[in-house]
Design a protein around this nucleic acid. Structure first.
Lengths: 128, 128
DNA sequence: CTTTGACCTTCCCGTTACTGGAAGGTTTAT
DNA sequence: ATAAACCTTCCAGTAACGGGAAGGTCAAAG
C-alpha cells in the first residue's frame, strides 16, 4: 500500500509517516519504482503509534512502548511504569495551566474591557 | 547594569535576555567595552515580559501587550481581548489534557503492573 | 605586574515533532 | 500526448530558548 492510503488508514499525514521512517521507527518495504510499500504489520504499528501519540506519549516513549509491545514476554509492570510517569507529567502540566487560568481569569474579570485606558491586566503585569 | 545582574533582578537567565534582544524585544544600551547596559526602563520592560511569559503568553502576545503597555491611551478592551483569547487557549489545552489523563488513568488502573505479560495498556493501544 | 577567575561578547548547533515547499520521477486517466 | 495526482529526496522553518566554543574584559589576589 502506498503512503497516502496508509496514512488515510491509520490517521496520519504522509509527511509524518516519512518522518517516522527517517527517525527509524518504521521501515516500510520499497517497490521497484522506489515507492514505499506498507504491509499490514506496518499499518498496525503505525496505528499503534498514532494512538499512543494522541495520548500525549512522546516519540521516545513510543519507542519504548513499541519495544514492549513487540516483546511477548515483557512484564506488564514495565508498560505501566511508562504510563504512570507520563500520567504524572500530564498532571503536573494540568496543575500549571490551572494556576495560569485562575490568575488570568481574575485579571480578565477585573478589567472593564472598554474604551478607557486604565487596565488592571497591564497594571498587574507591570507591578507583579 | 550588566546582563547577569539584570537577569537576577527580573528573574531571567542571561541567555533569554540576549534572545529577547536578538528578536528585537529589548534593546539595551552598550558600554564602551561592548557590554550590554540595562537601564531601569529596560529592567522594567524585562520584568513585564517575565511576568507575561510566566502566565503563558506567547512572545508574539508579549509584543502586543508591550505595545499596549507603552501606549498610554490604549483601550483596556484591547488588552482584555488578548488575555481572553489566551485564556480560551489555555482552557482548550486543559480540557485536552484532562481527556488524556482520564484515559491514561483508566489504563494504568486496569493494568496489574506485575511481572506477567498481559497488559491492558498495550492491548488498548493496539486495538484502539 | 601578572595571574586567576568571573564576567562579557558573538556564533553555531541542538531541542520536539513535525510542516511546507521545491525539484523532479511515475502512474493513471483523458 | 498530456495533465492530474501520485511519489521521491532534500532543505528550511517553527517556539523559545539552552549548551558550548572561542575569545575579549575586568577585579582582586599574590
Amino acid at each position: 500500500m502506498n503512503i497516502k492510503d496508509a496514512g488515510l488508514r491509520v490517521g496520519l499525514p504522509p509527511k509524518t509517516i516519512r518522518y517516522y521512517e527517517d527517525i527509524g521507527i518504521v521501515t516500510p518495504d520499497r517497490a521497484d519504482n522506489g515507492y514505499r510499500d506498507f504491509s499490514d504489520a506496518h499499518l498496525h504499528k503505525l496505528a499503534f503509534l498514532a494512538r499512543a501519540r494522541s495520548l500525549g506519549f512522546s516519540i521516545d516513549d513510543c519507542r519504548d512502548l513499541l519495544a514492549l509491545w513487540e516483546d511477548q514476554d515483557r512484564a506488564s509492570g514495565d508498560v505501566r511504569a511508562i504510563a504512570k510517569e507520563h500520567l504524572a507529567a500530564i498532571e503536573t502540566k494540568i496543575a500549571g495551566l490551572q494556576d495560569m487560568r485562575a490568575t488570568l481569569a481574575d485579571l480578565v474579570q477585573s478589567c472593564a474591557g472598554d474604551a478607557r485606558p486604565d487596565c488592571p491586566i497591564i497594571d498587574k503585569l507591570q507591578r507583579g
